[in-house]
Design a protein around this nucleic acid. Structure first.
Lengths: 330, 330
DNA sequence: GTGAAAGCGCTAACAG
DNA sequence: CTGTTAGCGCTTTCAC
């Protein structure tokens, strides 16, 4: 029993044709005479031949593989992005090469550069500042960014972050809250946009926004930040968190501190992760259509790969999801 | 401004050496005379040369890529597996090729077969029955299974599912519950083991287990199943769910039905997903160390790739996490 | 329709 | 240490 898989030459020999013919047959490149086609089919079946995608890629320069770099697969937002991107990729017969940079900035560049060499195109979510991102363009691969970037001439998809937090702030104002805090995540580029949205809304009402920072975009960081925010000198009536994970942690810790949500404190997040719905109380948030973002990013990339003109930026509309973690100011 | 990336030949020419020398230099295969090394370094820097991993792989037969197939990246259990596997892969300079089969059985085989051709080895989580899995062995690639399989001579990692639900049942018995139901997911192979564990424990106490089935391993399915279980003729005092997601959905729906958890009903899951902690009430569950499973699976595969004898099956010990969704029977 | 030949970019002996 | 020489498995002109 032999081990090594059969090559195109084995098939050619078995079928009594040339390798060129086998190649064309495998690629459905043209039509064949009945007898040749029959022998080809038989030989391939017989040998269990499967063409070597590596050899093929080396020549064609295409691997039917797309790279996706994200910051942390544990974050349900990214999980959904991956889910969406993967679905579209599969549909078009592409395979996803996933790289999780683990929120580690130093790692990003080498990882992405290495990845770029093995794929036909990339979808990138990173914390790289626009002005340090020149090398991204030098990758010479079709690229789609998972955030808006005016500085980089790259197609991208994202949401209107300003509007997202504006909506949240408006919702809280409508509920009668006047003292509203924002618990952000400064490392994220979009943090500023989110601050701005909330602040603008409050300023229109003649109010100001107290800004705090969590040290990670995680539930754990939200827990850690809670006492600092709630037991400090400027205890807010409502808190807008950078994302749902932080909000979830914050709510849990608030409960531990004996603060009742939403009666004594309203809490909101952003992302609409699947588990906000099962939290205690269910989390009011803004849906940013993570899965759709992944789908669209992949679709754009595949379009670009197919030679269609690269699209510009696409923005998804945020949608407020009111649940039980916000209530009238009492 | 030229586009095509420089090849090893360009570097050789620029440095005035042979391609073999460049190749060896790139692979750090040996030492070089100072002048040659200097020229090499300069030429590479100058041209921005990066070796083509495809061409290299074709010869060496190694791609430093590992395939991981999972059923659904949205399930936090798998998310953690991916996280763990990715971490170990990165540490060893491997890249993860992720395939999410979307709980679609028909898709699995072609996807895995295609994946197998592009990677050095695979970690597989699938619903393929052991007796239909012969083709997995024919892949001729190092493989690690994410579940125990006595029928397949493959290394694997998993947990003691029997013990997991046994522990849960014991915990509920200790709390005084006598009428305990199991809400499973029949499609999963390990479902039977989980039923058995709970059943054995109850039988030792002279009790029987009522078994129900959710139609998916998701929170939504848990919600759907709730009324069927709780408003049927045999209303249980406690429910052991196949996994945390189902449990989370079940709890939420129970609340909607006016059933207070844990006072009127104890609910448990399995997996210890990150958000069970933030649910209402916090979910009692069994930790199965998903991330560690991913790490170990990857470690085993990398060891196998490095020529070390393939290990057999490794079992993680489940650990009961008591939170607030279980309480003394009242 | 079919085949011969020339590589893709790189590595792997083997000489020197 | 460095270079020569064969290819890896496949696609791609370009004749026939």
């Amino acid at each position: 029993m032999k081990k090594l898989s059969p090559t195109i030459r084995d098939v050619a020999a078995a079928a009594g044709v040339s390798v060129a013919t086998v190649s064309k047959y495998m690629n459905g490149a043209q039509r064949f005479s009945a007898p040749v086609e029959a022998r080809l089919k038989a030989a391939i079946e017989e040998l269990g031949y499967r063409s070597n995608p590596l050899a093929r890629s080396m020549i064609t320069g295409r691997s039917r593989t797309i790279g996706l770099t994200i910051l942390d697969i544990s974050n349900p937002h990214f999980t959904n992005v991956v889910k969406g991107a993967n679905r579209v990729a599969l549909r078009h017969d592409y395979t996803l090469l996933l790289v999780d940079t683990d929120e580690n900035q130093a790692r990003e560049r080498p990882l992405i550069e290495a990845l770029a060499q093995r794929v036909d195109g990339l979808i990138v979510s990173s914390r790289i500042p626009d002005d340090e991102a020149q090398w991204l363009l030098d990758l010479d691969k079709p690229l789609v960014l998972l955030r808006r970037s005016d500085a980089l001439p790259l197609p991208s998809v994202g949401i209107d972050n300003r509007l997202a937090t504006y909506m949240l702030a408006r919702h809280l104002l409508n509920l009668g809250h006047r003292h509203i805090a924002y618990l952000g995540f400064g490392q994220a580029r979009i943090n500023d946009e989110r601050i701005r949205g909330a602040r603008e809304c409050l300023e229109e009402a003649g109010l100001t926004l107290d800004v705090y920072d969590a040290h990670a975009p995680t539930a754990h960081a939200g827990e850690d930040a809670c006492s600092r925010v709630m037991l400090g000198p400027r205890r807010p009536q409502a808190v807008i968190c950078y994302n749902d994970l932080i909000a979830l942690g914050f709510m849990k810790e608030a409960a531990s501190l004996g603060i009742r949500v939403p009666h004594e404190l309203s809490v909101t997040g952003v992302d609409n992760v699947p588990y906000g719905e099962y939290a205690a109380p269910a989390l009011t948030t803004v849906d940013i259509q993570s899965e759709k973002m992944g789908e669209l990013a992949m679709q754009k990339l595949i379009d670009a790969l197919a030679g269609h003109a690269a699209a510009g930026h696409s923005t998804f509309e945020p949608r407020l999801i009111v649940r039980e973690s916000t209530a009238a100011c009492g």
